[in-house]
Design a protein around this nucleic acid. Sequence first.
RNA 1: UGGGGUGUAGCCAAGUGGUAAGGCAGCGGGUUUUGAUCCCGUCAUUCGCAGGUUCGAAUCCUGCCACCCCAGCCA
Length: 563
Amino acid sequence: MSSQPPTPAASPADFIRQRLAADQAAGRHGGAVVTRFPPEPNGYLHIGHAKSICLNFGVAEEFGGRCFLRFDDTNPLREDETYVQAIREDVAWLGFDWGDRLTHASDYFQRLYDCAVTLIRQGSAYVDHLDADQIREYRGTLTAPGRNSPFRDRSVAENLALFERMRRGEFAEGECVLRARIDMASGNINLRDPTLYRIRKVAHQRTGETWCIYPMYDFAHTLSDAFEGITHSLCTLEFEDHRPLYDWLLDQLALPHRPQQIEFSRLNLAFTVTSKRKLNQLVDKGIVAGWDDPRMPTLAGMRRRGYPPEAVREFIRRVGVTKKENTIEMGSLESAVREHLNTHAERRLAVQRPLRVVLENWPAGEIETVTLPNHPADAARGTREVSFGRELYIDADDFHEDPPGKFHRLKPGGEVRLRGAYIIRCEGLERDASGQVVVLRCSVDLDTRSGGSGAARKVKGTIHWVHADSAVPVELRLYDRLFSVADPDEGGDYLQALNPESLVVVSDALAEPALAELAPGETVQLERSGYFTRDARSAEGALVLNRTVSLRDSWAKLEASST
RNA sequence: UGGGGUGUAGCCAAGUGGUAAGGCAGCGGGUUUUGAUCCCGUCAUUCGCAGGUUCGAAUCCUGCCACCCCAGCCA
C-alpha cells in the first residue's frame, strides 16, 4: 500500500486520563487502574450517569484495568433490589461488561462494622446520644464553628460496649449514632464529627434482619473502594469537600489499598432535568408514561426512543471531562444520534398527513413495481420492492396551492419527482365542503421512471409517497424536548416549563408495506422526515413508531426566518 | 470575618512560557432522485478583569470580580 492511512488526530486526553497515565507511568498502585461505578439502587440511570459509566468503564478498558459495578445499598429505607436489575440492563445496553465484578456495599457490612470497631479502639469514633436536632445545633453553621458533643469524650470501653448494644438492637432508631471524632471547629463541615452509623430497624433488601445499624455513605463508600482495591475513585464535584474525610478514613485504618478520589463535573443537558426527585415526580404525576417514556433523559427512555448506545457513548466522548460546570446543548446529543443512524438505519417511505393523488393518465388497475435502495450510500444494504399505481398519497406538507418562493415541492401546474418512481405534474385539485384540498389530479411523465430512459430529467424537488393499494396504517409518535426552556429550574417551578408539544401523536399516517415487518426496537429513516424506532412496548400487532430524532431541516429554517 | 471549586467563541473543549486544536451550532458555496447525507470555505488580534514579571504570558506573580457546591441519622 503506497497511500498513507489517514491518522485521525487523537482527541487529547482529559485531566483524569492524564493523571491515570502519569500514575501508571510512575508505577503507582503497581501500575493498576481499578475503578467503579457505584449507583444507589433507588432509581433509574439517566444521561448524567452515562458520563460516569463511560468514564469509569472506559478508562478501565483503556488502561488495561478493571471496573466494578457496585451497588451502594446502605439505606434500606429508600432502596430496592428491583432497581438493581434495571441498572444492570442499562449498563449492559451502553456496552459495558463488569464481568464478575458486580458487588454491593452490603457485601461488606461485617468488614465495615469491624473497621468501625477499630476506629473506636483508636479513640477516633464515639457513640453519641445527641438526637438529630441537637447534632445539627451542635454542628454550628457555615461561618460559625461547632461545639463538642457532651458524649464526645466517652471512654473506649464505653463506646465499644455502646456500639455493640447498637448493633444488638438495644437502642431505638434515632436514639444514638456512631460518629467520627475529628474536629468540630473545622471549616469543612464534613469534618465536624460526621455520622458513621445510624440505627434503622428495617429489613435490608439483601441482608434481611441481620443488621439494624447501617453505615453512612462516606464510611461505606471509602472503605468499599479500599476493599475492592479501587485505585481511582472518580466522582462528581459535590463530593470534593468530602475528600478530606475520605482521606482521613484511609489514614485511620491501615488498609492494604489506598484509593484516591478525583472529582469531575456532572453532565447537564439543556431543556431537561436530571435529578432523581424531579424525574420521579414526572412519572408520579403522570406527566410522562413511565421511566422509559421516550422523552425521559433516562437510559431506558433513550433506548425506547431509539438512541443507539454507540451514539450515546460518542456524545459522552465529545463532551469531555473537566471540572467546569456545563450545560450541553441538545443539538450535540442529536448530532451524535443522527450521525450513527445516517450510516446504520435503512430508508423507508411513509406519509404523515396523507393527501390523495390520482394519476389521471395511469391506467386504472395497472400496478407496477418499483425498486428502492435500502441505503443511498451503501448498495450492500440491498433493495426492496414497492407497488406503484394510479392512486397514491403524498404528504400534505409537500403540496402548496400558493407557495412561497423557493418552495421546491408540488404546486398547481408544477412538477415534482416521486422518490424512486416518476415525475408528476399537478393538473388540478378537488376540495371538500370546507374548501380543504382533498385530492390532487396529476399527470405522470411515463418516460421519467427511475432507471429509465428519461430518468435524468431534472425537477426542483423529490418527495416521498405511498401507493394507496398497498400502504399500511401506522401511528407515529413525534417526540420533542420535554421542557420549553433551556433551564427548567430557572423560574423556580420546573413543572411550569413543560413543553405542551413534547409528544404529538399522528394516528393516521400511511407507510410502505415493509414497515409492518420492522422489528420492535429497530430503527429506520423515514425519508425526508426523521429516524423512527418501532415501539417495543406497544401491543403485538400495533404498528407504532417513535420518532428518535428528526432530520435536519434547512427548509424549515428558511421558512421560519422569512416570516 | 467559614471551607472547597470553576472562569478560553452561542454550547462543549484542547492548550502546562514561544505567538489560540477539535467538536456541536451558525454563516457562505458545491454535489445530490431525501431541502438529508457528503464536500469545501468561514467563524477568538484574544483567553473573567486590572496590574506586574519576561525578549515573549491563556499559561508565572499580585489584587479584584463573577458563578457553583457544603450546615441529612441521604447518596
